[in-house]
């Protein structure tokens, strides 16, 4: 029943990508004679993203946000559920069948050091997608396109002969973005693309992503643990906790008035760079519970200061509280604040 609600939930016109009741479970432990446990990294997740829309996905480590992003791009095979890309079910497609779809959906990695092959030049790295997907292009045409996409990300063809280690972290991230853009994708998953960078460089890359979405109209799933960055870049935000989306809403609505206690606590925990503000912070007790043995009912109830006995009985369904604003909390009476 939660599923039907969730599918109905965020319905932009003509979704580019639609995710229905997606589950990604991983077996752990286990051996020859012993049945292992199952980590429910992503559990019953449904949402959709419209053409040109940017959805932020926020959560802490262990929330399953990265696993979700990778599953949607079919870097793994989901346990159950459905992923529709441009109306087509891609959930069970094999490697070969996915190949013609790859140019339409690309990935931006977190670590600008690990995501570029140290033995390849920038020209080879950025040109590889063309080499594979557009083998008909000759060297000159390829170079022209490489130069074009490098300019888009603020680099020039002048750098094309160099190796990744000759660049700073921010520049490397630009190279990674260029590789993702060269085939003109309709959809990007960006997995914490700025969190490995220095503060002053973070801002450069956030600005670049803002420009890219404005100019190229590419839709994005932007995964981050940083609410402030998400706020600057995204149209809507989904908050994940222990494998499930607990709240999803238009950015402004979520920032003005969060409707899930976990979102409230997240806002409260972000340190604000202004020493004159002294606020009462909500300090959550304990850690995220183990995904091996999640609590019954609402997974957040153990750390929630508004928890009721009923919270333990069943996983709360996603319910709509406002236009496009959904929360997985059974309490309707809460007046959650966001201390700033």
């Amino acid at each position: 029943m939660t599923a039907t609600a969730a599918i109905a939930a965020p319905v932009p016109e003509s979704p580019l990508i639609e995710v229905r009741e997606l589950r990604q479970w991983f077996p752990v432990g286990g051996g020859l004679l012993r049945r292992g446990d199952v980590v429910r990294a992503v559990d019953d997740v449904s949402f959709s993203i419209a053409k040109g829309e940017v959805l932020g996905l926020v959560g802490e480590s262990g929330s399953g946000k990265s696993t979700l992003g990778r599953a949607i791009l079919r870097m793994s095979t989901p346990t159950s559920g459905q992923i529709l890309f441009e109306g087509r079910d891609v959930t069970k497609l094999g490697r070969r069948a996915l190949r013609p779809l790859r140019p339409r959906m690309q990935f931006i990695f977190q670590d600008p050091f690990a995501s570029l092959n140290p033995r390849m030049t920038v020209r080879q790295i950025v040109g590889a997608p063309l080499l594979i997907q557009r083998p008909e292009l000759d060297g000159a045409a390829r170079d022209a396109r490489i130069g074009e996409v490098l300019r888009t990300v603020g680099l020039s063809l002048h750098y094309a002969g160099r190796y990744p280690h000759e660049f700073s972290g921010g520049q490397r991230q630009r190279i990674g973005i260029a590789r993702a853009l060269i085939l003109e994708p309709a959809f990007l998953v960006a997995d914490e693309p700025v969190s490995a960078l220095d503060v002053s460089i973070q801002a450069q890359i956030v600005n670049l992503l803002i420009d890219i979405r404005k100019e190229l109209g590419v839709a994005m799933l932007f995964i981050s643990h940083d609410l402030a960055v998400v706020g600057h870049l995204c149209d809507r935000v989904a908050v994940m906790y222990l494998g499930r989306i607990v709240e999803i809403a238009p950015t402004r609505a979520l920032f003005r008035r969060p409707r899930h206690p976990y979102t409230e606590a997240l806002f409260s925990a972000v340190p604000v760079p202004d020493p004159t503000i002294r606020r009462e912070r909500i300090i959550l007790k304990g850690d995220i519970p183990s995904p091996l043995a999640p609590p019954s009912g609402c997974a957040f109830r153990g750390r929630c200061r508004y928890a009721l006995p009923e919270c333990a009985s069943a996983v709360p369904p996603l319910r709509q509280v406002d236009g496009g604003h959904w929360t997985r909390c059974i309490r309707d009476d809460l007046k959650l604040g966001r201390s700033l």
Partner: peptide, 25 residues
């Protein structure tokens, strides 16, 4: 450095570019 940090303020949200420091260390 202080300007390049994105703020949580709901009024500051939405595609306004951050004031980045150009170049790198």
């Amino acid at each position: 450095l202080l300007h390049s940090v994105p703020r949580l303020d709901p009024e500051a949200l939405g595609l306004s570019p951050l004031e980045a420091i150009p170049g790198s260390v």
